[in-house]
């Protein structure tokens, strides 16, 4: 099956030059300002960056659930999916109406979402089973009884003990770790080909974090879904990801295979991020390097390269005047920085 093999090499999701802006009374916020990346079946893509760099908005743009004041104003989100006749087609999600039947059939069915707050991402008013079975019944056209059985099976597959009993419990009766497992069960209940995990372990303690990550890896091996892992934790990236995208102020500043990002980061921002991780070899009682300055206010973006005010290698007259673009800096690796590329149009 050469054809099938070639098909597998195609990205299941391609995000091209995605721009999601928020139009607020106070001003325009360019939450995502030109994101580019691909997701492959069975692989994990890490999206890293500080808080407020547009990671979560990127995820929500893909699902088309950005809040009302936000709009996708440019770009493509191409989803490769099997349509009703088993035909593979490429669907641009940005072209769909967010509320359309087709888009809703993609949310939850083709793309599952797990996110940060296991405390509040379930409603306290319905049982876990009710909330899982709801999606299952709708997308897989199952009866109430079948949907409930599926919910129990899913809870078992994410390692929740006594799923027959847990299915009738309310979220506040579960511990944080169990709740996040239940959340994963819900996201995977319709067998999506893509799982978006938005800071799935941030609110958990370290032991539970490791268990949840191991669970995600195991489920990915079993089911072969693509995972888009959004995190600010580089340790999690090193452990889980195949490819990494580094974002800063809504733009991708560097991307590449995980080993190259960790061992030969090119962009000064990526380098600075890596320096700020404590290492087992670093000397005790020595302050970790930090990135100087802080993220600019969203209404006051710097001109030129968004990182230049905090960059130790910024070149005056160039970095503060022109915007760099993402270009190759090595095998499979791209960075958006004038240290490696001349401006496309000289000033």
């Amino acid at each position: 099956m050469d054809n099938g093999h070639a098909e597998r090499q195609q990205p299941i999701l391609s995000v091209r030059n995605l721009k999601t802006y928020f139009f607020q009374d106070e001003g325009l916020v360019r939450a995502v300002d030109g994101a580019n990346f691909d997701l492959y079946r069975g692989k994990t893509l890490g999206i890293v960056g500080e808080s407020g760099c547009g990671k979560s908005v990127t995820a929500r743009s893909v699902l088309r659930i950005v809040e009302r004041s936000g709009r996708i104003i440019e770009g493509e989100i191409l989803l490769r999916r099997e349509d009703a006749d088993g035909q593979i087609d490429l669907l641009d999600l940005t072209k769909l109406d967010a509320e359309s039947r087709l888009m809703r059939s993609i949310r939850g069915k083709d793309i599952g979402l797990v996110f940060q707050e296991p405390m509040t991402s379930f409603s306290a008013h319905y049982t876990i089973g009710n909330q899982i079975a709801e999606a299952v019944g709708m997308h897989l056209k199952l009866s109430k009884e079948q949907a409930r059985q599926r919910a129990i099976d899913m809870l078992r597959s994410v390692g929740i003990p006594k799923p027959e009993r847990r299915v009738d419990e309310y979220p506040f009766q579960l511990s944080g770790g169990l709740r996040q497992r239940a959340m994963i069960a819900m996201a995977l209940s319709c067998d999506p080909s893509i799982l978006i995990a938005d800071e799935p372990t941030t609110a958990l303690d370290v032991t539970t974090q490791a268990q949840i990550l191991a669970l995600l890896e195991g489920l990915q091996r079993e089911r072969g879904m693509a995972i888009m892992l959004i995190t600010h934790n580089l340790g999690v990236v090193a452990e889980m990801c195949d490819q990494v995208v580094v974002m800063y102020l809504g733009r991708v500043v560097e991307k590449g295979p995980v080993d190259q990002i960790f061992h030969s980061a090119k962009h000064p921002y990526t380098q600075a991020l890596l320096l700020s991780i404590p290492s087992i070899e670093s000397e005790p009682r020595v302050k970790l390097p930090t990135i100087s300055g802080s993220i600019p206010h969203p209404y006051r973006r710097p001109n030129g390269c968004p990182f230049h005010p905090r960059c130790s290698q910024a070149m005056p007259g160039l970095c503060d005047a022109q915007v760099p673009t993402l270009l190759p800096v090595g095998p499979d690796q791209e960075a958006s920085c004038f240290l490696y590329h001349q401006p496309v149009e000289p000033a």
Binding site: L63, R107, E117, T120
Partner: peptide, 26 residues
Amino acid sequence: RKPYVVTARAKGLAETRVILKYPVRA
């Protein structure tokens, strides 16, 4: 504004159902 509303949307429920079943109930 609570995350469970996002969860309900991400499940693919119709907007009316999302609002009536979850936040209105609360």
